[in-house]
Design a protein around this nucleic acid. Sequence first.
RNA 1: GCCGAGGUAACAUAGUGGCUAUGUGGCGGACUGCAGAUCCGCAUACAGGAGUUCAAAUCUCCUCCUCGGCUCCA
Length: 465
Amino acid sequence: MTLRVHNTMTGQTEEFQPISGSRVGMYVCGINTYDDSHMGHAKSAVTFDVIRRHLVRKGYQVTYVINFTDIEDHCIERTIKLGIPLDQLTEKYIGEYHKDMGRLGVKRADIYPVASHHMKEIIGAIQKLIDKGFAYESGGEVYFDVMAVAEFGKLSHRKKDEMLAGARIAVDERKRSPLDFVLWKNKKPGEPFWESPWSEGRPGWHIECSVMSMKYLGESFEVHGGGSELVFPHHENEIMQSEALSGKPFVKYWLHGGLMNVGSEKMSKSLNNFFTIKDVLKDYDPMVVRFFLLNTHYRKPIDFNQKALAEAAQALGRMQNTLDAALAALATAPEGRDDFGKVAAEAVEKFDAAMDEDFNTRDAIASAFEFSREVNKYLESGATKGGLEEVIKAYRVFDEILSIFKFEKVGQEHMLAPLMDIIIGIRQKARAEKNFKLADEIRDRLKALSIVLEDSADGPKWKVL
RNA sequence: GCCGAGGUAACAUAGUGGCUAUGUGGCGGACUGCAGAUCCGCAUACAGGAGUUCAAAUCUCCUCCUCGGCUCCA
């Protein structure tokens, strides 16, 4: 099966083919390290986590890089306001990021470069751009000379003259052209700064990504990702800089995720309509949040609201119930095999095919739901050990990508198990004596403790919500 | 204004020339002491208009509407 990916550069869904061999370099724009991450950041992290997982499943050797931007207006503002060194702020929010994303089942990237730790390389790159005639100094600042490059707007499909005609570009007399963007900025009083040949100051926003991605992945690499709001100007400028530096094509596939909306408006810090990951995880299981994020194709926007999360909880619970039942049945099922393995293999095939079509997690999840229904029927019709093992194996494949299932009872449930055996024993006695009032009371009181008790054909089952 | 992504049943999402979708919710049935879980069934779809085609939700054109980008942003 061949993997197809939607490339922003061409606007097409294309067959995925690494530049050479089976190595894949993947760079994704991470966060600015001045505050807790919100659900929009979670969407991005989970999206590219899944993309990375699927590339690995396809057998590619992926080197995954996510950067942290710590030299930027908000970070500088925050470090001044709190009166702490930039490094300390950076470290704190990198830690928080890893904590939050870790809870959401996001696997660690291979490398997490930090902008302020690459100052030497950044300054070197700017100097090289000046030497090659792609940048110029003006009053202690350095600008990229957009008119010096032949290709403009490759990614965002814009033309220079159209951009110049656009009304929203601020004029700055230090720039030769309004389209030029800053590579090195003068410091302002009280701001952290670095020494450079041009002034005491700091780099512009775009150059760090060019420098760090090429440092760790080479001058040309396969995948560059981020939220769709980064297409212009950030990624567009990255391409111009990088290709001006190397003289080679920068990135083969540009992948952009849809944004998180709140009531059809973009979730963002500046609109102050954001929900932090920490806040959301107070009310919802991390796996539910992850499911919620993956239940829409990554390139589409998702509207964040309580109803959608509650629905996600219900829907994921349905599949988890099936998995729980299959795991429980495994202990008591008769030895032997049957041909349910075929159904499981087909489900996995369908799942993989969906993932191969531009990482269509929504479609992949649909096939997992269909499979769950088949498994429920199979469980009722008398499953064998061999068949159930195939079932569990299929869920493990789904989870390799989605990472939304629980295969083992958590510690708390282990502790409760002997106690629950006693309570259930008493209740079963009451039921046998048709003392339903007592039986129902036990069930209700357990429910008040978030322990759900359900009678089934195979006897009572319980779980902690 | 320019560039991009969209408008699918009550709601949320897939699909993208013939196969009628997945979940949530609703209704009916099976099972159950009841509840729940599960299974089976039912209803409600492709923004509007024109065109191409034996055949259009899917292709073409036009219109309307939504969102994003053009400024810090995942």
